[in-house]
């Protein structure tokens, strides 16, 4: 058990079982896992933070949320207070995901050069400007698309297909239909060094 947790990367069978159990466990405890909505919620929290910083007299959180003229908050106009109560679960959830990644990257064998060479967790620092540019534009497109679709890889692909939802299958087909050709287009022209910057 301990050795298993210390592995840098699990085999696909163990990966499938544990990810699958996590997905079911989430439904058992509360609801299916979904991430992309939290970006919109985080936007609104950041904005309300900036607003209360700019005009300290208007520190009332509900006030910051009830800016009905702003198109940004179209989705939050209905029962704003309730929205915020709902969003706290999601925000804590995504913050915990960051923590989970941190723990998982630290919990590993000190000397596993083989695994490191194979998977390549080493070079987080050796990132080049092109990689940043791709990450930023990619992030923009991913979240724009996810919000348009009403979910992302976790909400539509994993949780959706788990419930055999038509929307999950459609989303998955559409995502791979563009991702595979775009990846082939971009990375076939890149040198080995460019790919190295990703690992």
């Amino acid at each position: 058990m301990k050795d298993f947790l210390l592995l840098t990367q699990w085999g696909w069978r163990a990966s499938g079982v544990l990810l699958g159990l996590t997905l079911v466990f989430a439904v058992f405890l509360i609801k299916p896992i979904g991430v992309s909505t939290q970006y919109t919620l985080l936007d609104s929290v950041i904005r309300s933070g900036i607003e209360s910083w700019l005009s300290p007299q208007n520190k009332d959180l509900n006030g910051a949320y009830s800016d009905q003229d702003s198109p940004l908050y179209d989705r939050f106009n209905t029962s704003i207070k309730k929205r915020f109560q709902h969003s706290s679960y999601g925000l804590v959830f995504v913050a915990s995901m960051v923590f989970g990644g941190f723990v998982a990257s630290r919990v590993k064998k000190k000397n596993s050069p083989k695994a490191l060479a194979k998977v390549g967790f080493t070079s987080a620092k050796k990132v080049r400007p092109k990689r940043y540019l791709f990450s930023f534009i990619g992030g923009f497109l991913v979240l724009f698309g996810a919000r348009l679709a009403g979910g992302c890889t976790s909400g539509h692909m994993m949780s959706g297909m788990m419930q055999t939802a038509l929307s999950g299958y459609l989303f998955t087909i559409a995502a791979f239909a563009t991702a595979i050709p775009v990846a082939m287009l971009i990375y076939s022209k890149l040198s080995k060094i460019d790919l190295e910057t990703m690992t």
């Binding site: 990619g138 991913v142 698309g145 979910g151 976790s154 459609l170 998955t172 087909i173």
Partner: peptide
């Protein structure tokens, strides 16, 4: 349970997401 509606926007949004996914190698989570 939470079943999401199958809309045209799901496929178009999924397609846009796919482009960014290939560029960055990340998804939101």
């Amino acid at each position: 349970l939470k079943i999401k509606s199958a809309l045209i926007s799901v496929m178009i949004g999924g397609g846009i997401l796919g482009i960014g996914w290939a560029m960055a190698g990340y998804c939101p989570g």
